[in-house]
Amino acid sequence: MIDPRIADSFARQSMMASLRAELQAAMQGRCVIHAPILAEFGQQHGAAHAAVAFALGDSAAGYAALSSMSDGQEVMTAEMKINLLSPAIGDRLEATGEVIRAGRRLIVVRAEVVAVAGEARKVVAVLQGTMIGV
């Protein structure tokens, strides 16, 4: 299920388009984004660059936050921390963002980024941060 407001916002993100990312789910407090691991966004060891995991995780967490906000509001990242756990090697990355706590002004979020290779799945990054309504 995808909230049309989030689908519209996602369609305007040139960064996600560059990564060929697709919005898979966006509902109350949760968002899932997939993207293929592309050679043009690789690092010197053959894995996806950490910036790809960060971009996907940040967007998934941001859209999870947006899904918990009133119509007419937008969201931006105030701060975000990433822990890189393993090289991002596989066919695609899957980022799942969720709201930890939605306050009146700030929303605390987290995201998990998984590398998918065939049927195998491996967590490659976890993010935690704060979103703010604008």
Rank of each mutant, 00 (worst) to 15 (best):
G46C: 05
A48L: 09
H49K: 09
H49P: 04
H49R: 10
H49A: 13
A50T: 09
A50V: 11
A51Q: 05
A53V: 00
A53K: 01
F54E: 01
F54Q: 04
A55W: 03
A55C: 13
A55G: 06
L56P: 01
L56G: 02
D58P: 02
D58V: 01
S59D: 04
S59R: 04
A60F: 03
A60M: 04
A60E: 07
A61W: 06
A61Q: 02
G62N: 06
G62E: 02
G62L: 10
G62Q: 03
G62V: 13
Y63M: 08
A64M: 10
L66N: 06
L66I: 07
S67Y: 05
S68Q: 13
S68C: 13
S70R: 12
S70P: 10
D71V: 11
D71E: 15
G72N: 08
Q73F: 05
Q73A: 12
Q73H: 09
E74I: 05
E74M: 11
V75K: 06
V75M: 15
V75A: 10
M76C: 06
M76P: 01
T77R: 08
A78E: 04
A78Y: 14
A78S: 07
E79S: 15
E79R: 12
E79H: 13
M80T: 09
M80F: 07
K81Q: 11
K81H: 09
I82R: 01
N83G: 11
N83Y: 12
N83H: 15
L84M: 13
L84I: 15
L85S: 12
L85A: 12
L85W: 04
S86C: 07
P87T: 10
A88P: 05
D91F: 14
D91C: 01
D91P: 05
R92P: 00
R92Q: 12
R92S: 12
L93R: 05
L93M: 11
L93T: 01
A95I: 09
T96F: 07
G97D: 04
G97A: 06
G97V: 00
E98F: 10
E98N: 03
E98D: 08
V99T: 12
I100G: 03
R101A: 14
A102C: 12
R104P: 00
R105L: 14
R105E: 10
L106Y: 10
V108T: 14
V108P: 02
V109D: 06
A111V: 07
V114K: 03
V114S: 01
V114Y: 00
V114E: 00
A117T: 09
G118K: 08
G118A: 10
A120V: 13
A120I: 09
A120W: 14
K122N: 12
K122G: 01
V123I: 13
V124P: 01
A125M: 07
